[in-house]
Design a protein around this nucleic acid. Sequence first.
DNA 1: GACGATACGGAACGCACGCCCCGGTTGGCA
DNA 2: TGCCAACCGGGGCGTGCGTTCCGTATCGTC
Lengths: 171, 171
Amino acid sequence: MRADAARNREKVLEAARELFASKGFEVPLDEIAAQAGVGPGTVYRHFPTKQALFQAVTEARVTAMIESAAEPATDAKAALFAFLSRMAEEAAVKRDMSDAITVTPQLRKNLHAALGSLLEKAQQAGQVRTDVTATDLVILMKGMLQSLHEGGNPEVLLQIVLTGLQSSRKP
Amino acid sequence: MRADAARNREKVLEAARELFASKGFEVPLDEIAAQAGVGPGTVYRHFPTKQALFQAVTEARVTAMIESAAEPATDAKAALFAFLSRMAEEAAVKRDMSDAITVTPQLRKNLHAALGSLLEKAQQAGQVRTDVTATDLVILMKGMLQSLHEGGNPEVLLQIVLTGLQSSRKP
DNA sequence: GACGATACGGAACGCACGCCCCGGTTGGCA
DNA sequence: TGCCAACCGGGGCGTGCGTTCCGTATCGTC
C-alpha cells in the first residue's frame, strides 16, 4: 500500500472517530471526508460502505467493552451493574455507542449474549427481578443510552434503571 | 366547503391516523395520500405541511391524555404512576405517541408541565426520589416509549422505571 | 528522470422525500 | 342545464445523502 494511501486512511478513521462520536451514525459521509481533508471518493477507496467505516471505528471499542464483562466482581449483581454503568459512561460521551447496537447486527448479538449471561447469574442469585429478559434489557438500555444525548442526567437515569432492575420489595 | 373536499379531508385524516399510529411520523406523506386514495397535492390542500397533519392527528389525543392527569387518585405517587402507565399503554399500541413529544414542541411543553406537577407532589410526599427532574422524566419516558416499538415487554419495562423512580431503600 | 500503476478529488448519478404547480374535472348555484 | 369557482391528481422541483466514475495528480521503481 502506498504511503499517501495509508496516511489518508488514517486521516479518514480519525475524522470518523471524532464525528461518529459527536454526531452519531447519521453524520453525512461527505462531512467526514471534508474533516479528513479528502474527497468522498477517497473514503470509498478504503471502506466499501459507510456502514463498514462505522464498524471499523466502533467494533473494537464495543467488543473490548463486552469482553470486559468477564472481569471479576464481588457478586453477580455487581457484575451486571458495573457493566451497565460502563455502557452508560461510554454512551454519555460517545454518541456512536448507542448507534452501534442498531447499525451492526453482529455487535447487537454479542451484546445480547454478554448481557444475557450476566443477567442470568444475577437472577439466579435472586438479586434481579426474574421477569426481565436479555432482549428487554438490550432494548431498555438502547432507549436509555439515546436519552443521554437529549439532556438527561446520566447518573440519575442510570440509577433509576439499576434500582428498577433489583428484585422488588414493594413498599 | 365543498362536499367532496370534506370527504377527502376525512379520508386523509383516517389514513394518517392509521399510518402514523403504525409507522410513526417517518411514514412518507405519499404513502398516506395513496392509502387515502388521493394525490399528494390534495393532502397539501387541506394541511399546509406534513407536521400540521401529524399535529391534527395527535394533538387532541395527547392533550386529552395530559388533561386526564388531573383526575383524582389515592395519593401523589399513584397519580404519577397511573399517568405514566397510561402513556406506556398508549405508546405500546400507537407509534405516534412518542413521536409527538419530538415533533410538536408545544405538546412536549405541555407534557413537561403536567409531569412536572405530578412529580413535584410525589416528591414532596417523599414517595419518589428527589434527584429526578421533570426534564429527566420526559426524556426517560420518551426513550422507554421508543423501546416499546422494538419488541420490549411493555409491562416489564414500565415496572422497571416505576420501581426505579421510588424513593430508594437500598437493600 | 521517466514511466506505469496506484490513488485522489469532486462532479455526477440514483434515490427518497417534502412540497408545489397546473391542466383537467367536478360540485353546487342560478 | 350551464357556468364558474373550487378542487383534484400526479408529474415535477429542490434538497440531501450514499455511492460511483473518471480525468488528473502522485508515488515508487528502473
